Amino acid sequence: MNLRKLTLSSLLIGIGVVSSNIIYIPLGIAKVFPVQHVINVIMAVLFGPWYGIAVAFLISLIRNLLGTGSLLAFPGSMIGAFLAGILYRNTNKSIYAIIGEVVGTGIIGAVVSYSIAKYFLGKESTLIFFVGPFILSSLVGGISGYFLLKLIAKTNVLKVYITNIDDLK
């Protein structure tokens, strides 16, 4: 395991956990968390889907253990991280990491979260109650992650991790 990847992943986990107390939008039993989407896009571009899933899982787990998250944090963040990482890996274009994040979290993750809320948590709601906010949050977070990556790419600090740095400049 690469120590640099592990260190940067740990730093992003810390940012994800700490910011969850500051930047979130409560929507019933769900908490929309745009910083998670920023982190998912960054992880997709820098390290791919497997590190992205691990970071999303650990942020969700720690948030739940601290009482700042819900069970719905797992499917949305992990599916978005996976799809963002797979699409970026297959295209080498950061726009596809954003699309993967929005589709993975905003649509697929929202449907899974709706199912968990309805069948496991006993919370009645409509599917649009999940899909709308999840899409909005993942779109805002995905675009923010893209611009943060562009800013980082200009400094060449993470050049070793970004396979297609010209895509971001």
Rank of each mutant, 00 (worst) to 15 (best):
V32P: 01
F33R: 02
F33V: 13
F33D: 05
F33H: 08
P34L: 07
P34I: 08
P34V: 10
V35M: 11
V35Y: 06
V35P: 01
V35R: 00
V35A: 03
V35G: 00
Q36N: 12
Q36S: 14
H37I: 09
H37W: 03
V38H: 01
V38C: 02
V38D: 01
V38A: 02
I39R: 00
I39W: 06
N40D: 07
N40I: 10
N40A: 14
N40T: 11
V41D: 03
V41T: 09
I42C: 04
I42N: 01
I42K: 03
M43R: 00
M43F: 05
M43I: 08
M43C: 12
M43K: 00
A44P: 01
A44R: 00
A44C: 05
A44W: 00
A44I: 06
V45R: 03
V45I: 14
L46D: 03
L46Q: 01
L46I: 13
F47W: 08
F47K: 08
F47R: 07
P49D: 11
W50C: 04
W50V: 11
W50Y: 15
Y51A: 12
G52S: 07
G52P: 07
G52M: 03
I53R: 01
I53P: 01
I53Q: 02
I53S: 06
I53A: 14
I53V: 15
A54S: 15
A54W: 02
V55Q: 00
A56N: 01
A56S: 13
F57R: 02
F57P: 08
L58Q: 09
L58K: 09
L58I: 14
I59M: 10
I59H: 05
I59E: 09
S60T: 10
S60N: 05
L61F: 14
L61T: 10
L61Q: 10
I62T: 14
R63D: 02
R63T: 07
R63K: 12
R63E: 06
N64Q: 13
N64K: 10
N64Y: 12
N64V: 11
L65G: 01
L66T: 12
G67Y: 08
G67K: 01
T68H: 08
T68K: 05
G69H: 03
G69L: 07
S70V: 08
S70Q: 10
S70D: 12
L71V: 12
L72P: 06
L72E: 03
L72T: 15
A73R: 01
F74D: 02
F74R: 07
F74S: 04
P75Y: 07
P75N: 06
G76S: 08
S77Y: 02
S77Q: 06
S77K: 00
M78L: 07
M78G: 09
M78T: 10
I79S: 04
I79D: 00
G80V: 10
G80C: 06
G80P: 05
A81W: 03
A81Y: 05
F82Q: 02
L83D: 04
A84M: 08
G85C: 04
G85S: 06
I86H: 04
I86T: 11
L87D: 06
Y88F: 15
R89A: 15
N90S: 15
N90E: 15
N92A: 13
K93A: 13
S94E: 11
S94H: 04
S94F: 14
S94G: 14
S94R: 04
I95W: 13
I95K: 14
I95S: 11
Y96L: 12
A97S: 13
A97M: 05
A97G: 11
I98D: 03
I99C: 08
